[in-house]
Nucleic acid binder design. Structure first.
Lengths: 198, 198
DNA sequence: CATAAGTAAATAAACGTTTACTTATATTTG
DNA sequence: CAAATATAAGTAAACGTTTATTTACTTATG
């Protein structure tokens, strides 16, 4: 029996993310992807049931999964609150800086109904993505270190600015001077920490 | 000469936003739109040069423009900082609460390269959208009321959480109990204000 | 050599857009 | 002031292309 080619599988994923980043999700087609990856369209269908299946797996495994891995590196729920949030912010910044294509699809998670639905279902089925961070919020709420909000609100207050700054970082790549440096990220992080702590 | 039908033009825009919200930008087609609006595909091309033109005008005029109008209601650059930010947050929350379709396309502004490009060009060409708010940031920086960051960073720190909370608001519509109330919005707003002020 | 991985080419359906024609109305004319 | 006219708005149907997916066949390897 002929074995599956891992390189072809990886090429599909990498090039799909590249096309999504450069041309948008709405301009990714199976035939365009096959041509760019130098394979037959049929080969994609050996690895994925259909286009939806490909997009959902790309989003869940390649983007959310990899980001979760990166964001939790050297993170520990028992960390001091400020230290923990700074760790998570730096991990986010450094990871996406080197994975711009993944960041592009990540952003579609807030817009595309398909990805939104996939994320919600996966969250319910397999327990929460980012569960350690949610637990971290809850611990610090009960220790009365941070204000008492539902986790969804904690996430909005503590995490949404870093994603917005990430966006700014990439837009400044095309402008003469980068204003989003690691220093600015850490100063911004301290702003959200200050706001949240009691 | 037969006059243009304003109702048809408005139907195109309203129904386009509806389809984008319900099925995603990637599933909006000119023929689907025409059928849903009960008009001929040709009629869309009388009002818009092509699909790109339609999407860009939808985004700039119907979404960004209308939001800008709503967000600045009863806002004055000379307001006290906390008062001004609270005004802007409440305006945002109340506007999108009643314009969910517009919010859906707004979110695509962070993902779709087409809309991203359109926004940047429009910002350069016609002066800044949200210029009064940017001026408000700068004034409060020079008055040493808030920390000194570039406007892009101010926007990320002060505005991105309300958009994230807006997203949560809509997701909770499908769940048994709404956790994103106006009270929670105002408490969250106070968190970002506290973080930002010196 | 059995078998799943892979290909090239084809399928029907849907796509954005256009063609050829009809309709409604502001203006001109009688 | 009403009928005629000019003209852009509108329609139904079609255009060629691209879409997602499949068929019929070839290839590589346990």
């Amino acid at each position: 029996m002929r074995p599956k080619s891992i390189e072809k599988e990886q090429a599909i994923r990498t090039i799909a993310l590249k096309i999504i980043h450069e041309e948008g999700l709405e301009n990714l087609s199976m035939q365009k992807l096959a041509k760019a990856a130098n394979i037959s369209p049929r080969t994609i269908y050996i690895k994925y049931a259909d286009k939806e299946d490909l997009l959902i797996k790309l989003f869940i495994d390649e983007v959310l999964g990899e980001y979760e891995r990166a964001v939790l590196e050297n993170f520990d729920e028992k960390m001091d609150f400020a230290e923990g949030i700074r760790r998570v912010w730096l991990n986010t910044f450094r990871y996406f800086k080197n994975n711009r294509h993944a960041f592009a699809l990540m952003q579609y998670g807030n817009s595309s109904p398909l990805l939104n639905k996939a994320f919600k279902e996966r969250n319910i089925q397999e327990g929460q993505f980012f569960a350690p961070i949610h637990k971290f919020y809850k611990t610090n709420i009960s220790k009365k270190i941070i204000k008492n909000f539902p986790v969804e609100v904690c996430r909005a207050l503590l995490m949404s600015p870093i994603f917005n700054l990430m966006n700014e970082y990439f837009e400044h790549l095309d402008r003469p001077k980068q204003i989003i440096t690691e220093k600015v990220i850490l100063e911004s992080c301290d702003v959200v920490i200050k706001g949240m702590t009691i």
